[in-house]
Amino acid sequence: MEIAQVATIAGKEFWDRIRNRWVLAVAAVFTVFALAIAYFGGAQQGAVGFRSIEFTIASLVSLVIYLIPLIALVLGFDAIVGERERGSLDLLLSMPITRFELLLGKYLGLAGALAFSTVAGFGLVALVLATQLELNALLHYFGFMLSSVLLGMAFLSLAVMVSVFATDRTRASGMAIALWFFFVLVFDLLLLGALVVTSGQYGGEIFPYLLLANPADVFRILNIFSLEDVRTLYGLATVFPAALAEPWLLGLVMLGWIAAPLAIATWRFRK
C-alpha cells in the first residue's frame, strides 16, 4: 500500500468538504444544538440555564444518536457510486492506485471532515462551558465527543460499503436510509419485542451481546454507563452487565464496526 496515494484521495475529499462549507455547516448545527440543550434542556422543568454536564450529555446523546448516523450516511453513501455514475471512476482507477487505496482514501478524507465538524462543533461548546465545569465533568464531555466521532466513523464505514454495493446513487441513498431506520429506529424495538414475546425467558443472557451488534447502542452504552446520575433513567442500560461496559471494550467494538464494513467494501470493490 502506498500512503501517498491514500493521502492524495483523502486530502481531496477533505478539502472538498471544507471548500463547499459542509464542515462549517455541520459544526454549526452541532454547536447550536449543544448550546440549546445545555442552556434550555431543563426548560420543561421550569428552569432555564446550564444545570449539569451529566444531564446535558444525556440529552445530547439522545440527539446525536439520531443525527450523527444520518449525517454520516448522507456524507458517504455516494463515495464510490457517485464517481461511477458521473463517469469519473474509470479515470481514477486508471491511475497508479489500487482499489483499496482509493476506498481507504475516500473513507479517511470523509472521516476527517466528519470528525473535524464534530470536534469543532461540540468543542466550541466545551470552551463556552469550560469556566463552569470541573475537570471530571470536562473529561466526561470529551468522552462524549470522542464516542460521537467513533459513532460517525462507524456509520460512515457502513455508508462507504453501501456506495460500493449500490449500482446507482438512487439505490445507494435508499440503502443508506434503510440502514438508518434499521439501526436507529427499528433495532431496539425488535430486541425489546423479542424480550417481551419470550417473556424474558430466552435471550436474557445474550441480550447485552445483541446490543453490541448495533453501533448506535454501543454509543449509548458508552455514554450512559459513564454517568452515575442518569444510568438508572435508562432501562436498556440497566440490563447491561457492568463487565461488558468497560469503555475500552466498547471502544474496540466500535473499531470493529469501523473496520468490518470497510473490509467488506474492499472485498466487493475488488471484484
Binding site: 501517498a4 496515494q5 492524495t8 484521495i9 481531496k12 472538498d16 471548500r19 463547499n20 458521473r86 463517469g87 469519473s88 474509470d90 479515470l91 481514477l92 486508471s94 491511475m95 497508479p96 492506485i97
Partner: peptide
C-alpha cells in the same frame, strides 16, 4: 476516457495537480 468527467469544483490547474499527485 470517452466523455471525460472531471471535478466541477476544482480549477483547471487544481484538476491537473490532483492527477499529478496520483501519478
Amino acid at each position: 476516457p470517452e466523455n471525460v468527467v472531471l471535478y466541477d469544483n476544482l480549477t483547471g490547474l487544481e484538476t491537473l495537480q490532483f492527477f499529478a499527485q496520483l501519478k
